[in-house]
Computed example of a mutant assay.
Amino acid sequence: MKLESTVTEDIVYVRLQGDLIGSPDSQQLVELVNNSISETKLLCAVDLSQVRFINSSGIGVLVSLLTKFRNRGGEMVLINPSEQIRKLLIITKLNNIFTIKETDQAAAEFLTQS
């Protein structure tokens, strides 16, 4: 999995590419978010548009990240997940927990208003 992070207007944008299936890549993602939170960035947008596959470990990482942000009064959204990931979120009923937006702009608007 490839991981890229940028900060724009106090929003941490995390762009993932490949498969989100646990392993050391997931630990790198969690560390990145922990560092961002410690810098008082409390808004996060995770771009899943280039993620091909996600398993239960990957879902667990996303839930963990969401929990970290919300516990500190922040928020996290998912950007443009694939149809497979959307179905998985529906099956696990996590679509009721995660906010999904189609574009960076829509995510930024939601996050700045939350």
Results as ranks from 00 to 15, higher is better:
residue 3 L to W: 07
residue 3 L to P: 00
residue 4 E to V: 12
residue 4 E to D: 10
residue 5 S to A: 13
residue 6 T to N: 13
residue 7 V to D: 12
residue 8 T to R: 14
residue 8 T to E: 15
residue 10 D to V: 05
residue 12 V to Y: 02
residue 12 V to C: 07
residue 13 Y to L: 13
residue 15 R to Y: 05
residue 16 L to P: 09
residue 17 Q to P: 06
residue 18 G to A: 15
residue 19 D to S: 12
residue 19 D to M: 09
residue 20 L to R: 08
residue 22 G to K: 10
residue 22 G to P: 11
residue 23 S to R: 15
residue 24 P to T: 07
residue 25 D to W: 10
residue 26 S to L: 02
residue 26 S to C: 12
residue 28 Q to N: 11
residue 32 L to D: 06
residue 32 L to Q: 14
residue 32 L to R: 11
residue 32 L to H: 07
residue 36 S to Q: 11
residue 36 S to L: 01
residue 36 S to A: 12
residue 37 I to Q: 06
residue 37 I to A: 03
residue 38 S to K: 13
residue 40 T to F: 14
residue 44 C to A: 13
residue 44 C to K: 02
residue 44 C to D: 03
residue 47 D to E: 07
residue 49 S to Q: 09
residue 49 S to Y: 03
residue 52 R to W: 07
residue 52 R to Y: 15
residue 54 I to F: 01
residue 54 I to T: 08
residue 54 I to V: 13
residue 56 S to I: 10
residue 58 G to N: 03
residue 59 I to D: 05
residue 61 V to W: 01
residue 61 V to E: 05
residue 62 L to M: 02
residue 66 L to I: 00
residue 68 K to D: 13
residue 68 K to S: 13
residue 69 F to Q: 06
residue 69 F to C: 09
residue 69 F to P: 01
residue 69 F to R: 02
residue 70 R to K: 14
residue 70 R to V: 14
residue 71 N to C: 10
residue 71 N to G: 08
residue 73 G to A: 15
residue 76 M to I: 08
residue 78 L to F: 14
residue 78 L to W: 04
residue 80 N to D: 13
residue 81 P to F: 06
residue 81 P to A: 04
residue 81 P to M: 06
residue 82 S to E: 11
residue 83 E to Q: 12
residue 83 E to N: 13
residue 84 Q to S: 13
residue 85 I to K: 07
residue 87 K to Q: 13
residue 88 L to Q: 14
residue 88 L to D: 06
residue 89 L to M: 14
residue 90 I to W: 08
residue 91 I to Q: 05
residue 91 I to K: 04
residue 92 T to Q: 07
residue 93 K to S: 15
residue 94 L to F: 11
